[in-house]
Design a protein around this nucleic acid. Structure first.
Lengths: 249, 249
DNA sequence: CTCATAAGTTAGGTCAACCTAAAACAAAAG
DNA sequence: CTTTTGTTTTAGGTTGACCTAACTTATGAG
């Protein structure tokens, strides 16, 4: 009754040694473990949404205990990936940020590739990418990117960092912020909730699509959208999760 | 000086929990860890080349200490993947064999895909596949296979198990066994030694190519091969690593 | 300014997968 | 039938990544 107590993902432990011995180009970074890459990604995301990353935020995002975060964060800052003051939260150092962006690039290129080259539905790529991002080499990622024409965003509209860690961090407004009568272009939606993605897809809400906010019911009620393919209504909560670019009305 | 003491592959530990909670279809197998998959693959390969797998053979193939193998083998036989008698070697159970073949399929489909869809050179796919095979879902493997026309062999000529674990285990003879004057078709070469593969490629020795053994120097000397694109000579050691199908003289 | 609460940390523990060194065993050689 | 040899196993240890429980620090309310 001890094992597998809280519906966890299958343990995928140490790297397979399988014939490792000879020349690894250690010119670059020492190749981080999968958990470490996940920590860095999480911290990057938290920093984007507001200053320093708190222990609890990291723990929550990774679904692990806060105590586990403390230890890992100490180790990572000893390795120079994080700047960390006790009780004060963490920030990525330049090295940490670079590593986070490399992982993010992997993740998003993989998502884009699965959709464009292998016909995956856009709500089915997140989990697959979440595993592959730790196993794919940079060379593979570059080939994938080249094969689909060096995409600049993933299928959900998230920007893809360049090979050398440059990313477009423009903050978009959400559909919830738009004025009635405003014409907007859908830019980005969250990639983690598959159900949400399927629903949005059924409504025709995808990055690139242009919609007009026709009406907004009072008291945070549903919004009515006009689009080429017809009208639709979305709740306020959903609207807040759709990032848009305002167009000249 | 303690860390990273013996040029090892980067440790890639437990699975990233990152938002795991809901419905996993546990209809099938419980998803094995990467090391376990490597053990099963190794045991499968050893069994193919001769009866039961000895502890030492497994250890050598995986580049780990024999002592480590004992423990793991006990665990795997408790899980019903291996049939194991102390001091007597191991064999795969049907369940273990099934799991080994699933991993083998992943590996070989990935290799084939990288070459045919992404333009990898055939000597550069092994290591990449070795990592990806533990991360890719069965659904992804099936999509890859479909995208390149359901291949039956990988780029080195190794047979790819079907989705439901059927594999062609025909034993081929090697070039070293052929008689002078014999016409043969290259069927398969080992996939692990990148240098060997590059060399074979430069000679034009690839699966599918037909060659005639024109001459064989005495005392295990080099063989002279006639092929469409010209002649070439190969040493006896190399010839023993090239599997062929004998054609009507 | 004290104190409750929330946030963070330390201490101690588990587990898988490896390791080395030493003991146990099987099989073949004297 | 004993001894040697080589393989296999046991014993005990390490590391990374997690856990729970208990303690510490920061902060906001009275």
């Amino acid at each position: 009754m001890t094992a597998a107590r809280r519906a966890k993902t299958p343990p995928r432990p140490r790297g397979g040694a399988t014939g490792a011995k000879g020349g690894g180009a250690r010119t670059r970074v020492e190749r981080l473990t999968a958990p470490v890459e996940d920590y860095l990604k999480a911290i990057y995301a938290i920093e984007l949404a507001g200053g320093a990353a708190a222990t609890n935020d990291i723990a929550q995002r990774l679904s692990i205990a806060p105590a586990s975060v403390s230890g890992m964060v100490r180790r990572l800052s000893e390795q120079g990936l994080l700047a960390y003051e006790r009780y004060r939260g963490v920030r990525l150092t330049p090295a940490g940020r670079q590593a986070a962006l490399r992982t993010l690039r992997r993740h998003r290129v993989i998502e884009a590739y699965l959709v464009r080259a292998l016909g995956y539905p856009w709500d089915g790529v997140h989990d697959e990418a979440e595993r592959l991002e730790h196993a794919a080499s940079d060379a593979l990622i570059d080939r994938m990117a080249a094969a689909i024409g060096e995409p600049v965003t993933d299928p959900h509209g998230a920007p893809i960092p360049s090979r050398d860690g440059v990313i477009d961090e423009t903050r978009h407004r959400t559909l919830a912020d738009a004025e009635v009568g405003q014409r907007v272009r859908i830019r980005r939606v969250g990639d983690e909730d598959a159900g949400l993605l399927r629903y949005l897809d059924s409504l025709g809400i995808r990055p690139g699509v242009v919609v007009t906010l026709a009406e907004r019911a009072p008291f945070d009620g549903p919004l009515t959208l006009t689009m080429d393919t017809g009208n639709c209504q979305v709740g306020a909560a959903l609207a807040a999760r759709v990032q848009v670019e305002h167009l000249g009305d």
